[in-house]
């Protein structure tokens, strides 16, 4: 117990960091997981959508701020940018590319998104340049919160402490409610579980797919937009994001929304504690968690063997 007396406070700090990191990871991974559930495509371009969402939010935010908008306006701008990117790029990608591919082998579908990722990486560079971009007005406006640490006090940004976890929780709750209790949501679940049967029941699977992909794209963009106030957007940010999201999705069990939340939490907290206990292994944490989980639960945390469902 003496260890805890000494380190208990540090554990508390690590928890706070882990939670906000988990929230950010969840925001990216949940869209990927949703799309995978319905379409059975692991969308590599999800990382690009994340990056574009971030860039769009930063650009829009800086533009609005230059018009003299108050700093609180930054928050709705982030959301608006995400919706815009999702609504524009989502249907475009789904209609023009993925729909034509839906009867092909899964590996071909996956590679289509890989090709798209390569194209979008360069387009994003041409559109937004290579200099790091940031939009931190909302974060500055919200200020910091002092968290007591023994006799000391450690400042955390309110954005990190409240906004990120808040939005993540809200997203989780909304998705859970929509999927369980609304007609549209139940249609999505039906297509996820059994596409053929769902179509036989008269569900317009094509429409559901389009809707899900658009929602997934918007969620990716929202993940990027939410990150825009804290991180610096640079070329290559999509590539490192997507590989982390893959780990979350595989750990979670495919198509599992709640699973994605738990996996993100595991990875977020795991990484945070690693920085305190064994900083040299921080990078390996997501993969170590994934391998460990799959060792004991080959279908992922919440995955159900054989039957597939959200």
């Amino acid at each position: 117990m003496s260890w805890f007396a000494e380190n208990g406070l540090l554990v508390g700090l690590a928890l706070l960091d882990g939670l906000s990191y988990a929230a950010a990871v969840f925001m990216v991974a949940v869209g990927l997981n949703l799309v995978f559930g319905v379409m059975r495509v692991l969308n590599v371009a999800h990382g690009s959508l994340y990056a574009i969402g971030g860039y769009a939010a930063a650009s829009l935010g800086l533009f609005v701020a230059s018009l003299g908008a108050p700093p609180w306006a930054g928050l709705p701008v982030l959301l608006a940018a995400a919706v815009l990117v999702g609504a524009l790029l989502g249907p475009l990608i789904e209609r023009l590319l993925l729909r034509r591919m839906q009867d092909q082998e899964p590996v071909l579908q996956l590679l289509v998104t890989f090709a798209l990722f390569m194209i979008l990486e360069d387009l994003q560079k041409l559109a937004f340049g290579v200099q790091p971009v940031v939009f931190d007005a909302p974060l500055k406006w919200l200020g910091t919160v002092d968290v007591p640490f023994g006799a000391d006090a450690i400042p955390f940004t309110a954005y990190q402490l409240y906004v990120l976890p808040g939005v993540a929780l809200a997203t989780l709750a909304i998705l859970a409610v929509v999927l369980r209790y609304t007609l549209v949501g139940r249609m999505v679940v039906a297509v996820t579980v059994d596409r053929e049967a769902a179509r036989a029941m008269g569900i317009d699977a094509a429409k559901v797919t389009l809707l899900t992909f658009t929602a997934g794209a918007a969620l990716a963009a929202l993940g990027g937009a939410l990150a825009a106030p804290t991180v610096s957007l640079v070329p290559g940010v999509g590539a490192s994001t997507i590989v982390l999201s893959f780990a979350v999705v595989a750990t979670a069990g495919l198509g599992q929304i709640e699973g994605a939340a738990v996996a993100a939490l595991l990875i977020g907290l795991g990484r945070s504690f690693a920085v305190y206990v064994a900083p040299e292994f921080e990078v390996v944490v997501p993969y170590a968690i994934m391998v460990t989980v799959l060792l004991f639960r080959p279908q992922g945390l919440f995955g159900v063997a054989e039957t597939r469902r959200i």
């Binding site: 289509v112 090709a115 990722f117 990486e121 360069d122 560079k125």
Partner: peptide
């Protein structure tokens, strides 16, 4: 923009 060129080539092949 070589990456985009490569991506477009792959896309064409797959489609």
């Amino acid at each position: 923009a070589w990456q985009a060129v490569l991506g477009i080539v792959l896309l064409c092949v797959i489609v």
